[in-house]
């Protein structure tokens, strides 16, 4: 009886957005009279940080600091339609809608600035700090604050924009299954290292090294938190979780956090996250949706590592100590 070590690898991809498309999202952007910007959506923030990311996307597009943008969302009286927050679609779909709306607003903003500065709008650029400058002559400038005031009180212009993003729905061909499930895919490769106690069947995940390709990390710290949390959930799925431990038998389903098992703070694997960026052709600033994908590769990587450690295949999830011990016993009696 011994503690045995093993390691396993898995590589995966994952589609961004609702399968087969047909999932629109709209956004509205407008400036306040003092040059702050409101993004109005009906999308929902589940904790992944959608509001923050939409603010950064709007700020980047208009050319202002992020703290000049306020996001108002999840209200059906004010926000235009969004299909919902699921299928790794929030950043991709709503982000594209926000870019389109912000571009339209930026154009009006530059036109008003051009009138104030008596130049062509196409000769202007933003400095990202809240000012609009004449290209090549930066001493000639006007603050966005003043542009917004002028637009509103003097020139009667609305600095605002409408955004819409829709990938037309694809219908699978009946006989061949020809279809377009998604326009872009995130990728991952995970290597997990485990210890298996062949006496108790207990698995300890020692390390998990995750490489994720996510298009573009719009906010690297937020990407990190989502990927770390996802990696934990993947390990949890691999080894612990189910509402029906003896599926398809309906008995013994857990009804609270004492019975429904997940790794606690004392059961964490040493986790490494490496991010690659291959910007997607149709993503907002190249982003793809990594929110779901990040919890997938750990499951087979752990399963393969368990085999590497003790030589039994557990092809049924979750990989519980009971299943490992039964498999070891069966192996011994063969």
């Amino acid at each position: 009886m011994a503690i045995r070590r093993g390691r396993g690898v898995a590589a995966i991809n994952y589609p961004t957005g609702m399968n087969l498309g047909g999932d629109p999202t709209q956004a509205l952007v407008h400036s306040t009279p003092t040059g702050n910007f409101m993004v109005t959506l009906s999308s929902v923030d589940l904790g992944q940080g959608m509001k923050q990311i939409m603010a950064q996307i709007c700020a980047e597009t208009i050319g202002v600091p992020t703290d000049r943008v306020v996001v108002d969302t999840a209200d059906t009286d004010t926000g235009p339609h969004c299909m919902g927050t699921f299928a790794s679609r929030g950043t991709h779909r709503a982000g594209n809608a926000v870019i389109q709306a912000a571009r339209e607003a930026r154009q009006v903003m530059l036109e008003v600035a051009a009138e104030e500065l008596e130049v062509n709008a196409s000769d202007l650029e933003t400095d990202g700090q809240g000012n609009i400058l004449v290209k090549g002559a930066p001493q000639k400038s006007i603050s966005i604050f003043d542009v917004a005031l002028s637009a509103h009180f003097k020139r009667g212009r609305s600095i605002s924009g409408r955004g819409m993003f829709l990938i037309p729905r694809s219908y699978p061909e009946k006989e061949t299954g020809a279809m377009k499930p998604s326009t872009c895919y995130a990728h991952a490769c995970t290597v997990a290292e485990v210890e298996v106690d062949d006496e108790t069947g207990e698995v300890t995940v020692l390390t998990v090294k995750n490489v994720f390709e996510i298009g573009r990390a719009l906010n690297p710290k937020m990407v990190e938190q989502q990927l770390v949390g996802g990696s934990w959930m993947g390990i949890s799925h691999a080894l612990y979780e189910t509402t029906e431990p003896y599926y398809p038998n309906r008995d013994h389903g857990g009804t609270d956090f004492n019975q429904y098992l997940m790794p606690g703070p004392g059961d964490l694997a040493q986790t490494e996250i490496i991010v690659l960026e291959r910007p997607s052709a149709d993503g907002p600033y190249g982003a793809k949706g990594p929110g779901e994908m990040c919890a997938n590769p750990q499951i087979p990587a752990v399963a393969n590592a368990v085999f590497d450690a003790v030589g039994v295949r557990i092809d049924t999830l979750p990989i519980t100590p009971e299943r490992i011990l039964r498999a070891l016993k069966a192996q011994a009696s063969n």
Binding site: G49, A59, R216
Partner: peptide
């Protein structure tokens, strides 16, 4: 400028 920056979350 803003994209790719680890800005603190406003929430």
């Amino acid at each position: 400028h803003e994209i790719g920056q680890p800005r603190p979350r406003s929430d």
